[in-house]
Amino acid sequence: MLEKIANRIKITEKALDAAWLRNEAISQNIANVDTPGYKRKTVEFEKYLDGALDGFKLKGNVSNEKHIPIGRIDAEKLEIKAVSDNRGLDYRIDGNNVDIDNEMASLAKNTIRYNMLVETLNAGLRRIKSAISEGRR
């Protein structure tokens, strides 16, 4: 049970890392809104998480440490990747594909997501604390 919560905390940690890096990418995009030829940067994480979740329906029991875990997300293997987005080249004459309104919206979204993830993480930690104190407070 504790292991389950611990794994969930690890995944949340990864998601927090991704949100942090994404904030950096959005800051970089906003900073370079007037730089000719600049290509916006994005962070890929959710699609890797989705890919990991796809195998979630089938569950395998792990009775030996050498078993490959089936249906459990291995938090260590989740990828976070910063990539350049080359789409939307015809948006502006100077070859820059940053849309400032889009970036501001993403910034707000990302901050809210980060706060939400911190709350999730805290809830997980509180549960462990509660278990340690045998449910008394």
């Binding site: 890096l21 950096e24 990418a25 800051s27 970089q28 900073a31 370079n32 730089t35 940067k41 990828e79 976070i80 990747k81 910063a82």
Partner: peptide
């Protein structure tokens, strides 16, 4: 994979 840049 985590290199973003240093601004402008």
């Amino acid at each position: 994979k985590k290199i973003i840049g240093k601004g402008v």
